[in-house]
């Protein structure tokens, strides 16, 4: 059993060495780890899902949110003080986030449409049942 009073000063000292604002950094760490978890879901889905269209579900959604969360987390982690420069940095990173928010679904749709016009038919229910039996 680890005592909280013993751990807290160590953490505080470590944070003092690194610089930055403590509660903001904690939120940033949490967001980064959450993004990593969702990206794990995407990676496993890319391997496990049966056909191209279902893999697209994993990639199109997981990619958007995990990238957004990780970038937002790093925007908070790198914020050292509330000066103009660090605010500008946060706004820049948020510009990337906004850009990805618009473009990720668009490129997903473009690939999807290209595949659909290439006579790449999606799996039907019976094909899937056959595959599950194997």
């Amino acid at each position: 059993m680890i005592h909280v009073q013993a751990v807290l000063p160590v953490v505080a000292e470590a944070v003092d060495k690194g610089g930055g604002i403590f509660p903001l950094q904690l939120i940033g760490f949490a967001l980064g780890v959450l993004g990593l978890v969702f990206f794990l879901g995407t990676a496993v889905g890319m391997i496990r899902f049966p056909d191209f269209y279902t893999r697209m579900h994993a990639a199109g959604k997981g990619d958007t949110l995990s990238t957004m969360l990780m970038l937002a987390g790093f925007a908070l982690v790198t914020m050292e003080d509330f000066s103009l420069g660090s605010w500008l940095l946060v706004v820049k990173i948020m510009a990337i986030v906004l850009f990805l928010y618009i473009t990720c679904p668009t490129s997903t749709h473009a690939l999807m449409r290209a595949a659909f016009e290439d006579d790449e038919m999606p799996l039907e229910e019976k094909d899937l049942a056959k595959r599950k039996k194997k």
Binding site: V37, F38, G41, T42, V44, G45, R48, F49, H57, A58, K61, G62, T64, L65, S66
Partner: peptide
Amino acid sequence: EVVLANVHVFKLAM
């Protein structure tokens, strides 16, 4: 909705 979608994909994959 994006968060819900990601939880859904995570559930399907895992």
